[in-house]
Design a protein around this nucleic acid. Sequence first.
DNA 1: GCCTGATAGTGTGATTGTCACACCCAAGCA
DNA 2: TGCTTGGGTGTGACAATCACACTATCAGGC
Lengths: 234, 234
Amino acid sequence: MGTPRTYTYDYPMPAVTVDCVVFGWDDNDLHVLLIERGEKPYEGQAALPGGFIQVGRESLEQAARRELEEETGIRNYHLEQLGTFGNPDRDPRYHVVTVAYFALVRKSDHRPRGGTDARSAAWCPLDEVPSLAFDHDEILAVAKKRLYGKLRYKPLGFQLLPRKFPLRDLQRLYETASGGEVDKRNFRKKVLEMGILEDLNETESDVAHRAARLYRFNESAYRKRSRDGWHFEL
Amino acid sequence: MGTPRTYTYDYPMPAVTVDCVVFGWDDNDLHVLLIERGEKPYEGQAALPGGFIQVGRESLEQAARRELEEETGIRNYHLEQLGTFGNPDRDPRYHVVTVAYFALVRKSDHRPRGGTDARSAAWCPLDEVPSLAFDHDEILAVAKKRLYGKLRYKPLGFQLLPRKFPLRDLQRLYETASGGEVDKRNFRKKVLEMGILEDLNETESDVAHRAARLYRFNESAYRKRSRDGWHFEL
DNA sequence: GCCTGATAGTGTGATTGTCACACCCAAGCA
DNA sequence: TGCTTGGGTGTGACAATCACACTATCAGGC
């Protein structure tokens, strides 16, 4: 559509892309969403989903959301900027500056292989990630570090868990992030005393043991406490 | 030098710049380094120092350091990436994506108006900053928030203070960042027990009151403790 | 040289938060 | 019905945090 044309500048220009590190949680493990590249540099290799920004037409965050939705069909997720990577040789073709984003999604909200179309997007457990295209290994490493750090002092874990969850699952997630074990009783006491979880008076079903109570993150309670100078920490 | 030429692409390209928020500390107040714009959009208005990256030739951090050194002559400072701003209309001319950096310098290391040349760079107290060009107000706001947050859990304050400093000054800096007052005795005890300050057995001179002892940040002690899983917090 | 104003430096006790720890309970399944 | 699995609950020891007030030292002015 439209006549082919070209764009001329007085100086060399870099290309700008966005790449997204999408984390999902699956009962026991963190997963990242990877695509398989269908085009030339690094064709066939795994990479982070992303693409070029539409110059003059969208903000960086809009570009990240657009790419994510196009390539993976996911919606409703936490998204924040992670950092920008711009070494001149990070793309073998020419100078590409990429703005990396960091997304947290509820895997349970999206049908197992949500792929609307195009290149295959698939969840990959964090400790089985293959070598990635470009400098995406480095980007992923930064994202991991940021996620683990941030889970402790921002209530981001609730963006990964299903809306209703038992405390056990919350604890597992935090143990994964901190790399250590946590005492069950202390964990429960601490979390419940924060007053940001709503007890749903429901229990799990279909489990082969005593069913656990389900809770929901109470965002407005969280915001109220935050306004009063309190801050989340686990 | 070199023949004038142009650069042609199949797609529209954004420009990429770096901008630096440079903080300095002056006994009692935080200052930011601002330049006065000498060129068209926002000519004559205050702005953050920065400029275009050299496409294909330097990384983003190299670009930030180059621009800072060119425009202000400062050297030896802490520099980290702050975030990237890329709304299509943030520059009235065309789509410019800017990668913001965040620098901490010892004002005492640099002669009062270090300007090597070119446009005038000047320190401005944080609470007297005028309205800035582009979206630099927003960038500065993000930087301030990041600085205040980070001072509490990373030993960045020592990058702002002179190498030898009395505890009083350290306390002032932290009070500024946290917006509250702190008990002198508790502060001293806490800081000294960290074991990351070296007592120089020297005192201030030329003060109209009892001279305070001077201390120095002991980076290797800090790193050793960090490796053992300890973390800085004030 | 002595008085004054300004800031440096120092210890304790009360309170609060953090941590480690073990047992009984409910439900599904064989 | 009993075995297995994980759910749910309280207390006491210890450590960290907080609030708090006085004496010491220096420079400058009188």
